[in-house]
Nucleic acid binder design. Structure first.
Lengths: 339, 339
DNA sequence: CGCGGAAACTTGATCGTTCAAAATCCCGTG
DNA sequence: CACGGGATTTTGAACGATCAAGTTTCCGCG
């Protein structure tokens, strides 16, 4: 394999200097048309590609975004993250950025790993997921002034409007509100199957159902269980046995929806409308309606926050409060269960 | 933020030269104990981290592996890939390697993207997934002599033993064989629900069932449909209606298993043993047994092939035929369906 | 005590790019 | 036709590490 051509080689062929080649690549506007075309031709002829490490060394920018992969926890909801990672990679590529993965099992490990990557000049920014109240990662990132954006809003009251804390999230309440409006077509008694109070995400999703029911002047049963198919199945089976009136069921997750659907089918109501959340393959497999998070929009929003609406370098953070986050409206996917 | 310390800074503090610091990092054996300790202390005191781009520029090694993310196709089986990516990231980190993602929608796009990354010195090796017969990617990688390993064996006859083509795969036949042996406990008539003949993976999985049945002197029904829950449900429903004798059902995928389970439940046999493949969250949610691919072992095998059993740089490929691939034995996960 | 050779350490050059500053070109004007 | 000044291009230096080729230190032995 012949040695890869460098700017120097291109310059020689095009009859210009190194720097002019560099300018054609980075600031084409300041190069005269004829010169630019000659250089571009030479680049094509030689198959020149800039050497990323050399560029990163000189500019002190790696054009790379780091993202943590959670250890596989089992359960259903990894899919949203995976789709997000994929979408992020696509969008990042479009903007001349790369996506580097890193693994860590605890927050402390993650901080250590981020430290290595940042200090080693390997990443310019980080995307963190699954933030929680008092998350040490956000504190660390802020103190080291590493640009970052969170997928998931910060649940600490102070942070939500903190313009230094960029975040993107899906509007869970809007999702369950849409689900509830749809479910009200099937009957007045729309129940909600959610998680115990206290998780920010779960409370949001419950709120969308509650407020929509109130606005419609209706009331409905509210059940809570941990996020587990068997527990959901048992809870819904119990409610149906007690003769609770349920015309439709809005759920905080697809796991819960699957459990609910199975219980309904057991009780001879396989057509009971059950609406899940996350639109996982499992819901699809069973033909259940679900709320689709649109991870592609979340990814686009994350990059907009980090790089501005059209830039292709990680920019300093905006200082206006409203501009520091993006809230994506999810979408109801309607399906009819087979069988 | 103060400027990051360099080898020069460490050298000054430790009272040695640049190169000695470099040696402590890369070839500690040739540095005298006392000196090494002084340098290590200085590294700790200053919080020194080597600058990856500078190192990559000089050594012409990025210590990075590229992996392609498929566009999210819906369906169930993305999970195996996602777990593999995660496991790969963890193992790679342990060996001082990084994992860089790239996205592409077609094989041609993928080749173009790999070209950018390789020529830009961003990656030393590639992991490709979902190889097929006459895959242009393997041809391209070979012609450019880019080190690579495939997750999934090459289905072209010539390539399987080609020592230049490294691959890791899961032994599908061993998986369905284990499933079949387990199913035979439930009764003699173990049926198989698979894909139409012609996909290498599917044929392998069918073979495991067939050979095990033959060895046990039993026969069983064989059904084939495309990988779709509704189609599987219909096929199994039809078979049961016709009164086909089925004591248990081994399936080529979890999608098929879910469809089969639903049909069995419809027919009043919710306890019919149904065994899927891939051990996805969906199978877990329904309490179905499934074959677990052990993506962690696959990832470890991929790195062993690329880097040798213990090295931490991408090594030239082995030339012995047997050493060019790893076949991982999957594991049956037994569950009892609730309900 | 000096010698030889291995072990330990240091010095100069280099990887490919971009920054900063200096040099040259070009064109309208006086 | 020389001149000013913006537009365009070139030149030298630097980013931080490692390689290759020295130089110095150490230690056993004659």
């Amino acid at each position: 394999m012949a040695k890869a051509p460098t700017v120097e080689d291109v310059a020689r062929v095009a009859g210009v200097s190194r720097q002019t080649v560099s300018n054609v690549l980075n600031t084409p506007a300041i190069v005269r048309d004829g010169t630019r075309e000659r250089v571009e031709q030479a680049i094509r002829d030689l198959g020149y590609r800039p050497h990323t490490a050399a560029r990163a060394l000189r500019t002190r920018r790696s054009s790379t975004i780091g993202i943590h992969l959670d250890p596989y926890a089992g359960g259903i909801s990894g899919v949203v993250l995976d789709r997000f990672v994929h979408a992020l990679t696509e969008r990042a590529t479009d903007r001349g950025m790369r996506v580097l993965l890193y693994a860590a099992r605890t927050a402390d490990q993650e901080i250590a790993r981020m430290g290595d990557l940042v200090d080693g000049g390997e990443i310019d920014a980080v995307v963190i997921t699954g933030t929680f109240h008092g998350d040490p990662r956000t504190r660390w990132l802020t103190s080291r002034s590493v640009p970052f954006v969170a997928f998931g809003r910060p649940w600490g009251v102070d942070d939500v409007e903190d313009p230094a804390h960029l975040w993107v999230d899906v509007d869970g309440a809007a999702g369950t509100a849409a689900a509830t409006r749809f479910a009200l077509d099937a009957g007045d008694r729309v129940a909600f199957l959610g998680w115990p109070t206290g998780s920010g995400t779960g409370d949001e999703r419950e709120r969308g159902w509650r407020e929509t029911m109130q606005a419609a002047g209706r009331t409905g049963l509210r059940l809570t269980v941990r996020d587990d198919v068997a527990l959901a199945r048992a809870a819904v089976a119990g409610a149906l046995e007690r003769g609770e009136p349920i015309d439709a069921l809005v759920c905080a997750s697809d796991s819960l929806a699957i459990g609910a659907h199975l219980a309904a089918a057991d009780a001879g109501m396989p057509r009971l409308p059950v609406i899940g959340f996350d639109n996982t393959p499992s819901a699809e497999a069973l033909g259940l309606s679900s709320i689709e998070q649109l991870p592609e929009k979340v990814a686009a929003g994350a990059l907009d926050l980090l790089m501005g609406p059209s830039g292709n370098v990680v920019a300093p953070r905006p200082t206006t409060a409203g501009a520091a986050h993006v809230l994506v409206e999810p979408e109801l996917v309607v399906r009819t269960p087979a069988g």
